[in-house]
Design a protein around this nucleic acid. Structure first.
Lengths: 125, 125
DNA sequence: CTTTGTGCAAAGGCTTTGCATGCTT
DNA sequence: AAGCATGCAAAGCCTTTGCACAAAG
């Protein structure tokens, strides 16, 4: 079982308090007194447990966020990085038909939406 | 403009002849006499030109494939890695509605389908 | 007291870059 | 001949791992 430590709490709080997906390095920079390896290990565990999710940035870096359970997708602002959870998903039919058409089975889908959020639109671009 | 070299041709041929997305390291392993840096540089250029596309593996490694132009998605076999091009896309309406609902603009979508292909199904998972 | 977590530094893996050489045009 | 491409090795990043020490239960 998981042991309660200051560092783990700090990481969890940071994740919960963020509306963006954050990287291990970013967390390490933000949280004073938490070693980089500790950040990585905790993020690893959180994703293994299913508590946190992972997004991949264009440069290959992994970013983490806590977004709650259940099937959903992400809508990310390409300007400020804010991530919104999208529960509305009508991709199953499409995925199923495509799979059938190609002779595939056991198909899962994953979709990402990227745009510009309301507040970044106001700010101008 | 691009200069014609043996190495570049070899890389292009390999990409065109593959039904999977391949990594730089894989290409370097396959193609005798092509330096790793050369593979990376050519793949970089091919994607910049829009000739090749990029997929990200779970470990963060980048894999490349040539898939032709136009909007499309990918259906990947999780067993053998074969990638099929999917032109059928009905995600625009959904993406637009989600965007509107969240106050986002300029939204682009990207979907990945992963399943098991016909021949891997026969072979037995 | 035992077990698990942390920190630091080293090591790993993928990718990029500097520089001299070779090949294309 | 001039310029771009290649090769090799070094360097860069992100991430993981080994080991001794500290903290939790």
């Amino acid at each position: 079982m998981s042991r309660r430590t200051e560092q783990r709490e700090a990481i969890l709080d940071a994740l919960r308090g963020s509306d963006r997906a954050v990287t291990a390095q970013e967390l390490h920079g933000t949280l004073e007194g938490v070693g980089l390896a500790t950040v990585y290990r905790n993020l690893q565990r959180l994703t293994d447990e299913g508590t946190a999710e992972t997004l991949r940035r264009d440069n290959g870096e992994q970013a983490f966020l806590i977004c709650g359970g259940g099937h959903h997708h992400h809508l990310t602002c390409r300007v400020c990085g804010r991530v919104e959870r999208v529960r509305d998903c009508r991709l199953d039919d499409w995925a199923g038909e495509v799979a059938a058409a190609h002779g595939f089975a056991q198909v899962e889908h994953n979709a990402e939406l990227v745009g510009v959020c309301k507040s970044c639109l106001k700010t101008g671009k």
